[in-house]
Design a protein around this nucleic acid. Structure first.
Length: 891
RNA sequence: GGGAGUUUAGCUCAGUUGGUUUAGAGCAUCUGCCUUACAAGCAGAGGGUCACAGGUUCGACUCCUGUAACUCCCACCA
């Protein structure tokens, strides 16, 4: 069979993915096996695959493929999230392009467009996951707006309302003027921006001066209802209780005192605008002040609430002006009347919308909330499960973050002024009285009995629920655990095994899933949470469209192949740390593909020896190979155990490194070189079989990380009964490891390397042969590996000696000496230098060991095994020094 | 302002309850090789007073304290 020069991924990847799908390997149904369940963090239905998804899903695929090979019933559920704000924004933008305004559409019409859009673009990201090789059970693809899912969300809302946990209230909320909706606290991102601090004078009504206030938001001045100072502030003590005049609108407002105000910030006087600031609002309520709203839903000025004051023309002229424009205008107008004392540069924190980036307004608004303190009190496992590691977070440092958030939790604003999402199941009559019910009919029934009415006309709440109020049910509802509780799937797969997600959504999603799990299923939603870091560029910057540093993932897969992409992203992704993405690691992955491919080519070119008992070569070949086979088998077992352990600890990057090195160094560089037959010589059948077996096991070990190339090679190695994808590993069977043979292997490698080094230093070309004389007390040991040794250092003869050989290069390994004889002139000077350097090092080392051993306190306090190790170190060093000195003396 | 974390080779990271030959790997660098699986390769090499300063200990990369730098989370001092 002719194999291509290099591994060519594209066609091979498509072939195997289709084959696996056709065979239904990724589909799972409950059976008697132990389940291993992962639910995908549902990407936004509008999304396309980016590096974060790539990292995240590669990790999930590694875990799920490994579980599948370990004989577990592996189930990885795909799906998408309806992402109300993001999707609605995209639909609105699409409509705008078609010349349609959202405000001209009815809710039903708008939703028709939205679904149309979802059907058209919604599947893209899932298709992209297939390219990456993700072994998801596509039959289970879920969407947070599926009918059943929708019903489940509504059911939960009603349940929590009836339990008194969900309530409706007029509160200050975070308002996003771009999407015109309220947001939860978690959706507000604080950013530092350069702004200005304006010092504005408010003249006293009685005359006799003014009080100066420092503000960053002069555009809200027209809504001011008081000036507040600290009661201890000597500067203002005599002004408390007096009245000042608000510029432009000329409203008379009182000067009040409250400890809230810090004396040493600004002027120590704070203007109170209860309609536009959370703290002002609280102060306003405390001091019985009216809230005067001057900004509308889009953040534009409105004089509506000022009309009873008969505002002047100047005020009315502000109508409809955007808040930032308004700021400049008002400052200009106050400057015109000479009441701006000064303007300072100021760095301030400002809240922005996580989705739209718009600067958040605090706004008084009637919204739906969840009483989180009450909710958690009813489900205390939410906090204890993480604290006691019943649910394990990786990395564990996030436990602190989690518990801190939980213990300081605030009420969750769950209503959004959007249409794309689960519509709030509250029904109102004309007076604003309401009931909560799953449909209109039920609502009327409840309403009539609650308010003793009949024939009432009810209207459903216009708003929909926060997307996270649906995605927090994900691990249970993908198995219909709410809409059809107690079904076979939910009982079998829930709780899921592992969740893999980004640290950035620990509060948005992970914490809330844990709440939902204990509240609605009385059980944790998952046992382990593996948090990935952020994907950044080589300079540590976040990936962003603006910076243009976000690579095109599908382009990378086309260029390097999915396996190399997976390798590249995993090898550079230390557990719990951010991943600094560098394309060169994908290149390393591609090289690794080719390395595997070439090893396959080597083996496929071997010709089997026809067995002939009289063949004397055969016997010698067998003896030689015996060591290589034995050594590699043990090495393989050792690494298998090591990888097991690493994966249990979610150290996937480490595991991959270990496998990489096992294949590249131990298998290719050492084992294959030792086992391969001489030029144009056939190979002994038993060695061939064993090598194939090793290669198969290596492919199995690597398969979860690089599924395509390993499956391809596995199939090409020999006629296979089953596919690698579902090949079962030996499992937990205790593998005994012969430490002795591993040590021997290490020494052999050391001998080879040292002799090669000596050759290189003496300018012996690889082709030039040497005669090797070994001085050792373990002649038998070396006889067993004689052939390997001679091949690896290009020695034409190997002999054993009891004394130094003149005119040779001396190499010392452990306590053995190797004399390299060649026709070339020997550079004794450099040889001597090498030996002296080694001698110096050994002596230094010996001194440090002796120092330790002559320390009475050490001998008295150290554990016996530590003492023994030190004594052995001393003996070894002494022996080595003696050997080196002997060598030097013969020169 | 509060809390957490990080600091080990040019870069990215390992380093298990303090003692495994006076610290390891990959990438990068340098040297020599087109050796019949692989130059996308092979064989070698160089490179670190483990951020800094103290302390505990017979012994510290490892434990404690302080300092510095960076990162993240929480918190709307206008």
């Amino acid at each position: 069979m002719e194999l291509t020069k290099n591994f060519e991924p594209t066609a091979i990847e498509a072939k195997w993915y289709k084959h696996w799908i056709d065979k239904g390997y990724f589909n799972s149904t409950p059976d008697e096996r132990e389940p291993y369940t992962i639910v995908i963090p549902p990407p936004n239905v509008t999304g396309v695959l980016h590096m974060g998804h790539c990292l995240n899903n590669t990790i999930q695929d590694i875990l799920i493929r490994r579980a599948r090979m370990e004989g577990k019933n592996a189930c990885w559920v795909p799906g998408t999230d309806h992402a109300s704000i993001a999707t609605e924004a995209k639909v609105v933008a699409m409509l705008r392009e078609r010349g349609i305004k959202k405000s001209d559409l009815s809710r039903a019409e708008f939703l028709t467009y939205a679904w149309e859009w979802k059907e058209k673009y919604g599947g893209i990201i899932l298709q992209q996951l297939k390219k990456l090789g993700c072994s998801l059970d596509w039959n289970r693809t879920a969407f947070t707006m599926d009918d059943d899912y929708y019903k489940a969300v509504i059911e939960i809302f009603i349940r929590l309302f009836n339990d008194g946990i969900i309530y409706r209230g007029l509160r200050m909320v975070n308002w996003d003027p771009a999407s015109k909706t309220a947001l939860s606290d978690e959706e507000v991102i604080f950013k530092e921006i350069d702004s200005k601090l304006y010092f504005v004078q408010y003249p006293l009504v009685d005359g006799g001066g003014a009080i100066t206030v420092a503000t960053t938001r002069p555009e809200t001045i027209l809504g001011d209802v008081a000036i507040c100072v600290n009661p201890l502030d000597e500067r203002y003590k005599n002004l408390v209780g007096k009245q000042v005049i608000v510029p432009i609108i000329n409203r008379k407002i009182p000067v009040i005192a409250d400890e809230y105000v810090t004396m040493d910030f600004g002027t120590g006087a704070l203007k109170i605008t209860p309609a536009h600031d959370k703290n002002d609002n609280e102060l306003g309520r405390k001091h019985n002040l009216k809230a005067l709203n001057t900004l509308d839903a889009e953040g534009k000025f409105t004089a509506e609430e000022l009309m009873h004051e008969n505002p002047n023309a100047q005020v009315l002229a502000y109508n409809g002006i955007d808040r930032f424009e308004l700021r400049k205008l008002i400052v200009k107008d106050i400057e015109a009347i000479g009441q701006v004392q000064k303007i300072e540069e100021y760095k301030g924190q400002v809240g922005t919308s996580e989705r739209t980036g718009a600067i958040i307004e605090s706004r008084l608004s009637l919204q739906w909330f969840m009483d989180m303190k009450k909710f958690i009190a009813l489900n205390p496992e939410v906090i204890s499960s993480v604290a006691t590691d019943e649910i394990k977070l990786h990395p564990a440092k996030l436990k602190n973050t989690y518990s801190h958030w939980m213990n300081n939790i605030k009420d969750w604003c769950i209503s959004r002024q959007l249409w794309w999402g689960q519509q709030i199941p509250a029904w109102y009559d004309e007076e604003g009285r309401f009931v909560v019910a799953e449909n209109e009919e039920k609502a009327k029934e409840i309403f009539n009995s609650q308010y003793s009415t009949s024939n009432v006309q009810l209207k459903q709440d216009e708003d929909c629920l926060d997307t996270w109020f649906s995605s927090w049910l994900w691990p249970m509802e993908v198995f219909k655990g709410i809409s059809n509780s107690n079904n076979a799937d939910a009982n079998y797969y829930y709780p899921s095994t592992t969740l893999v997600t980004g640290q950035d959504i620990i509060f948005f999603w992970v914490a809330r899933m844990i709440m939902a799990g204990y509240a609605f299923k009385k059980e944790m939603p998952f046992k382990d949470v593996y948090f990935t870091g952020m994907v950044r560029d080589t300079q540590g910057r976040k990936m962003s469209k603006q910076l243009g540093n976000s690579p095109d993932l599908l382009g990378l897969i086309d260029k390097y192949g999915a396996d190399a992409t997976r390798f590249g992203i995993m090898i550079a992704s230390p557990a719990g740390n951010d991943l600094l993405f560098d394309e060169s690691s994908l290149e390393q992955g591609r090289h690794f593909n080719n390395k595997l491919w070439n090893a396959l080519k080597l083996i496929k070119n071997w010709e089997l020896r026809i067995r002939n008992e009289e063949d004397t070569n055969l016997q010698s070949q067998l003896t030689t190979h015996h060591f290589a086979l034995d050594w590699f088998e043990n090495r393989l077992n050792e690494v298998q155990l090591e990888v097991d352990e690493l994966i249990k600890q979610f150290k996937l990057s480490e595991a991959l490194k270990v496998i990489y090195s096992l294949i590249w160094d131990d298998f290719c560089s050492w084992y294959l070189e030792w086992a391969k037959p001489g030029f144009e010589q056939p190979i002994e059948a038993s060695v061939y079989e064993k090598t194939i077996k090793f290669f198969e096991e290596l492919m199995q070990l690597l398969h979860p990380f690089m599924p395509f190339v390993t499956e391809e090679i596995y199939q090409l190695l020999k006629e296979q009964k089953e596919d690698l994808c579902i090949r079962q590993s030996i499992g937990n069977k205790q593998i005994a490891i012969d430490k002795n043979i591993l040590t021997q292997g290490t020494i052999l490698k050391q001998v080879i390397t040292s002799i090669r080094e000596a050759r290189a230093k003496n300018q012996l070309k690889p082709k030039e042969t040497i005669d090797l004389h070994i001085q050792t007390i373990d002649v038998e040991n070396y006889k067993a590996i004689e052939t390997i040794l001679s091949k690896q250092v290009n020695a034409q003869t190997i002999s054993f000696t009891n004394e130094a050989i003149a005119n040779t290069i001396v190499v010392v390994v452990e306590n053995d000496k190797f004399y390299i004889a060649s026709e070339k002139e020997i550079d004794t000077a450099s040889l001597k230098e090498t030996l002296l350097k080694d001698l110096e090092h050994q002596r230094g080392f010996l001194v440090s060991v002796q120092k330790k051993l002559s320390n009475e306190k050490f001998v008295a306090n150290a554990k016996p095994e530590v003492l023994a190790v030190e004594q052995k170190k001393q003996a070894d060093a002494e022996a080595r020094i003696k050997t080196i000195e002997e060598s030097l003396s013969t020169m």
